[in-house]
C-alpha cells in the first residue's frame, strides 16, 4: 500500500488527505447520536437545560441516571425475558431449518418445487404485516400473554431454510455417503457430519436471528401485557416515553444504552462474525 501511495503525484495526495479528512468528519457526525447517548447517560443534566445536547465531557460522571433506570424499570427481568425469547426462538429454528434445508438440498420428492415456493412466500412477509391475524392465532392457541406466544411465529424460518439449503448444497455428498456406508444412522449422519460442516451457515443465521429478535418491538408489545412478560424493547418504551414527556434526557440516554449496549458491545467484539453473518444471510 505504501509504495502505491508514494506513486501519487503531490496534488493527488492532497486530494486524498482531504478525502480522508472528509470521511473522518462524516463518520464523526454520523456517530453523534451514539456519542450523545454515552455522554448524556453519565452527565448531570438539569431539567430544561439548554445544553443537554452538549457532547463535551466537561463534567464529573454520575451514575444517577442508571440508578434511576434500575429503580424505575425492571431491567433484570427484561434481560432474562429477552434472553429466553431470543435463545428459545433460535434453538427451535436451528432444528427446523436444518431438517427442512437438508430435505430441499438433498432429496427428490414429488411436489418439491411447489413446496419450495410455498416456503419462500414467507421470505418477504415480515410478521408485522400479518400482525392482526397472527395475534388472533396466538389467542386461539392459548399463547396470548406468554413468552412462547412471542416466539411461536418465528419458529419456522423460510429464510433459514433457504439459507441452509444453499449451505448444504456447497457440502460435497461424499461425507454423508461415507458416514452412511460406515453404518451411521440418518440422524447420526446429520448431527455428526452435516451440522459441523454447515457451521458457518448456522452461525451466520444465529447472529442474524439473535440480533433481529433482540430488537423486535411491535410483536411482543401486541401479544403480551403482564409486566413479567416484558422484553427489553417493550420495557424501554414503557418508561422512556414517560421520561421523555418529563424531558429527563439523562434517564432516556441511560435506559437506551442499557437496551442497546449488549449488542453494541457484542458487535464491537465480534465484528468480523457479525459482518460475515449479515453478508452471508442478507435478510434479517
Amino acid at each position: 500500500m505504501k509504495t502505491r501511495r508514494a506513486r501519487f503525484p503531490a496534488p493527488r495526495r492532497t486530494l486524498r488527505l482531504l478525502a480522508v479528512a472528509l470521511l473522518c468528519g462524516f463518520a464523526l457526525i454520523w456517530s453523534t447520536p451514539l456519542l450523545w447517548m454515552l455522554v448524556a447517560s453519565v452527565r448531570d443534566i438539569p431539567f430544561g437545560s439548554t445544553d443537554a445536547a452538549s457532547l463535551m465531557p466537561d463534567f464529573k460522571p454520575t451514575n444517577a441516571h442508571f440508578a434511576d433506570a434500575f429503580a424505575q424499570g425492571d431491567f433484570v427481568r427484561w434481560y432474562v425475558n429477552t434472553l429466553l425469547v431470543t435463545l428459545g426462538i433460535l434453538m427451535v429454528q436451528l432444528v427446523t431449518i436444518t431438517l427442512a434445508g437438508y430435505a430441499f438440498a438433498r432429496m427428490e420428492f414429488r411436489g418439491k418445487n411447489l413446496l419450495f415456493y410455498l416456503f419462500l412466500l414467507q421470505l418477504t412477509l415480515a410478521p408485522p404485516i400479518l400482525i392482526v391475524p397472527n395475534t388472533l392465532m396466538i389467542v386461539r392457541l392459548g399463547l396470548y400473554d406468554s413468552l412462547p406466544g412471542i416466539m411461536a411465529p418465528y419458529f419456522a424460518s423460510a429464510f433459514g431454510v433457504f439459507l441452509m439449503r444453499q449451505t448444504f448444497k456447497t457440502i460435497p455428498r461424499d461425507f454423508e455417503e461415507a458416514a452412511i456406508l460406515d453404518g451411521a444412522s440418518f440422524a447420526q449422519m446429520i448431527r455428526l457430519v452435516l451440522v459441523p460442516l454447515a457451521r458457518p451457515g448456522l452461525i451466520a443465521f444465529s447472529i442474524v436471528s439473535l440480533t433481529s429478535h433482540w430488537n423486535e418491538f411491535l410483536w411482543p408489545l401486541m401479544v403480551t401485557d403482564s409486566p413479567d412478560k416484558m422484553v427489553l424493547t417493550v420495557g424501554l418504551t414503557s418508561f422512556v416515553r414517560s421520561a421523555e414527556q418529563a424531558a429527563d434526557w439523562g434517564l432516556v440516554a441511560a435506559a437506551t444504552l442499557l437496551v442497546a449496549g449488549p449488542l453494541l458491545v457484542a458487535f464491537a467484539l465480534f465484528q468480523r462474525q457479525f459482518v460475515n453473518s449479515f453478508l452471508f444471510t442478507g435478510i434479517k
Binding site: 396470548y144 401485557d225 403482564s226 409486566p227 413479567d228 416515553r241
Partner: peptide
C-alpha cells in the same frame, strides 16, 4: 394483584381490548 403498566391512555385501551378479545381480561 399484579399491576401491569400499559403505557399511555390510548395504548392501555388497545391492550385492554386485546386482552378481552383474547379471553384474558384484566
Amino acid at each position: 394483584v399484579t399491576a401491569a403498566y400499559t403505557g399511555t391512555y390510548d395504548e392501555t385501551d388497545i391492550k385492554t381490548r386485546a386482552a378481552i378479545k383474547a379471553g384474558k381480561p384484566p
